[in-house]
Simulated scan of single mutants.
Amino acid sequence: MTTPYPVPPARDPGFVPPTLGRRFGALVTDWLLCLLVSNFFGGPVQHPWLPVLVLILEYGFFLGLFAQTPGMYITRIRCVAWTDGGRIGLVRALLRGALLCLVVPPLIMDEHRRGLHDRLTGSVIATATRPARTPS
């Protein structure tokens, strides 16, 4: 598996996680998108768990396949595997989304700003690296 990082976050002594502001901005963006999507199936008043389910599915799909949700893309952060810096896969992404919706796990962070939901799924939020441009 090709990783976007030369050194995985777990073995990088200089790893600096993104700010909480960028993480929160990504979450708010994703939540607004989930509210918009869930309105196609019924409003949050009629089906209060529908936006939460959409958020879990969004995290499962986007993190599992692309390592970024739309909100993470906008704020230039990624969710990668702690040990190798690659994608976390669909199952761990769904679990991470479900744990995120419990609210408490994200509040229990370590020195790398890895919430309990990140530690349980073996993931970390990292700054998205931009691909190197080749001169034309």
Rank of each mutant, 00 (worst) to 15 (best):
C34V: 05
P18N: 13
T75R: 10
G42N: 08
V16L: 10
P51N: 07
D118Q: 09
T75V: 11
V7N: 12
V124C: 06
A98I: 10
C34Y: 02
A126L: 02
S38G: 10
C79S: 14
V91Y: 01
D12W: 11
L33G: 15
L35V: 13
L32H: 04
Y59K: 09
L116T: 03
R114F: 04
F66V: 10
L33E: 04
T121I: 07
T29R: 06
G71F: 00
T83L: 09
L50K: 08
P8A: 13
A93W: 08
R96T: 09
G42L: 08
V37D: 04
P13G: 05
G86T: 15
R87K: 15
R130Q: 14
F62P: 01
Q46G: 06
P70G: 08
P105R: 05
V124L: 02
L33R: 10
G71H: 01
P17I: 11
T3N: 08
G115Y: 07
P48Q: 12
W31V: 03
R22P: 00
A132P: 03
L94R: 05
H112L: 12
H112I: 01
V45L: 12
I125P: 00
D12I: 11
P18M: 12
P13N: 10
V124F: 01
A126K: 02
I108R: 05
